[in-house]
């Protein structure tokens, strides 16, 4: 790329930053105050952490689509994953293997805790799923877990479970009047059910994004 084009791009980027800065320094007072509305309805949401309430109740529909995005990314990665030229993987250090064996069960425990605490404090399905996925990656790096070329039926079911449970709950409560309108008394339980399914599926999906991309042993 020529110097002139590069200079133009830098100028464009700097101009955008300047415009953004100017716009931010001259903002009106917002006409709508959502934090107050969230606080007012928190008692009806089924959880007492406001971010979880927004994620899994007030704007749960965003989260549902986002789970689909994550699964879709894995489907895209799987479509690309071809058995690469078999490359002899260096055997993992025994210390790493021992450590991974030791830490992995602990990580599952932490994931369970994060899932449970999400209703009251920072935590929830995504954080728990990320820890699960990290355990999977660790086991893979230690050579204790094989890479997947094509996941089998059971694994595909596990990957899809979170989204399927979410969709099923979303339409099961249509009788209340609209999509994802939980009956107030059951909201907490339904959110925990959705989050439990999501934890498993998100953990598998995130791990799969890594495991499906690595070399397959002969």
């Amino acid at each position: 790329m020529s110097r002139a084009v590069a200079a133009l791009v830098v100028l464009l980027a700097a101009g955008l930053a300047a415009a953004l800065g100017l716009a931010m320094l001259d903002l009106p007072e917002p006409a709508v105050r959502l934090p107050a509305r969230v606080a007012a309805k928190l008692g009806d949401s089924g959880v007492d952490h406001p971010v979880t309430a927004v994620l899994l109740n007030f704007r749960a529909y965003d989260t549902l689509l986002e789970v689909a995005v994550l699964l879709l990314a894995l489907v895209g990665v799987l479509a690309l994953a071809r058995p690469h030229a078999a490359r002899a993987a260096a055997p993992a250090h025994p210390l790493l293997q021992t450590l991974a064996r030791l830490v992995a069960p602990l990580m599952v425990l932490v994931a369970g805790y994060l899932l449970w605490i999400g209703a009251h404090a920072p935590g929830g399905a995504f954080q728990a799923g990320a820890v699960l996925a990290a355990a999977g990656v660790l086991l893979r790096l230690a050579g204790l877990l094989p890479a997947w070329a094509q996941p089998g039926l059971l694994l595909r079911g596990g990957l899809a479970l979170g989204l399927l449970v979410f969709v099923a709950v979303a339409v099961a409560v249509l009788g209340q009047g609209s999509l994802l309108q939980y009956p107030p008394a059951a909201a907490g339980g339904l959110i925990l059910l959705i989050e439990a399914g999501l934890t498993l599926s998100i953990g598998l999906t995130l791990a799969g994004l890594y495991l499906a991309g690595t070399e397959v042993e002969p």
Partner: peptide, 11 residues
């Protein structure tokens, strides 16, 4: 109104 909340709290 998804979730029954209605804008601006809901979607």
């Amino acid at each position: 109104a998804v979730g029954g909340w209605g804008a601006p709290l809901g979607i």
